[in-house]
Computed example of a mutant assay.
Amino acid sequence: MKRRRLTAEDRELWDRVRANTERMERSSLEVERFDPDVSLPAPGPRNLRKAKSVILGKPVGPSRGPAHNLAPAIHDHIRQAPVQMDQKSFGKLKRGKLRPEGKIDLHGMTLDRAHPVLTGFVMNAHAQGKRLVLVVTGKGKQRDEGGPIPVRHGVLRHQVPHWLQIQPMKSVVLQVAQAHVSHGGGGAYYVYLRRHR
């Protein structure tokens, strides 16, 4: 790659940046951290890790450092949620053996349109005494515009479980689970409702 020469405009901009900056002084923390008087073991293949730990003040051990703090995938989050309903019924639900008493399809809806439609559907189903309904969100479109911020795949698929965990639906929803393949798989959710009182 060939280096480009600075233009007069670039030099002028750089001079203005330099004029507005101040020299940073080393903090006492940095001086202590990189104190040359600290005796280190002789560097070698076996002592390299130990030397690094002394310099950085980290414990020596087999750990590989902190794991990335990424949000878990939505299906992992739902799978790890505690089971609130009867275990036997939950097993049947996961195997697709329970038949949903109602179904709503949110395909093609915006978030603004889908939220009130879902809320009305779930609240009406509960008022009618239904126990299991199916909410179809679709898997979502893959549309990454190549920007610096990643775009979530399947906005409704990620948002619906959150909506079901907040009021007013939280008071009537007992369990949310990913639907069996026969009912839509990763693009649908079973919503098990509390008994109507």
Rank of each mutant, 00 (worst) to 15 (best):
E9P: 11
R11Y: 04
E12H: 10
W14H: 06
W14G: 02
R18Q: 01
R26W: 11
R26Y: 10
S27V: 12
S27T: 15
S27E: 11
S28A: 15
L29E: 11
V31W: 11
R33N: 01
S39F: 12
L40M: 09
P41S: 02
A42V: 14
P43K: 05
S53Q: 13
V54W: 03
V54T: 07
P62Q: 07
S63L: 12
S63E: 13
A71Y: 14
A73W: 13
I74W: 01
H75F: 13
H77I: 01
H77P: 00
A81E: 10
P82F: 01
Q84H: 13
M85C: 06
D86C: 03
K88E: 13
K88I: 10
S89P: 00
G91L: 13
K92R: 12
G102K: 06
K103F: 14
D105F: 10
G108I: 12
G108S: 12
M109N: 12
T110A: 14
R113H: 11
A114E: 05
A114W: 04
A114F: 06
P116M: 00
T119L: 01
N124P: 00
H126E: 02
Q128Y: 12
R131I: 03
L132Y: 14
V136S: 06
V136L: 09
K141T: 10
K141M: 12
R143Y: 03
G147M: 11
H153T: 09
G154R: 07
L156H: 03
L156N: 03
Q159K: 15
P161S: 02
H162R: 10
I166V: 08
P168A: 02
V173S: 03
A177R: 06
H180M: 02
V181P: 03
H183A: 07
H183V: 00
Y190W: 05
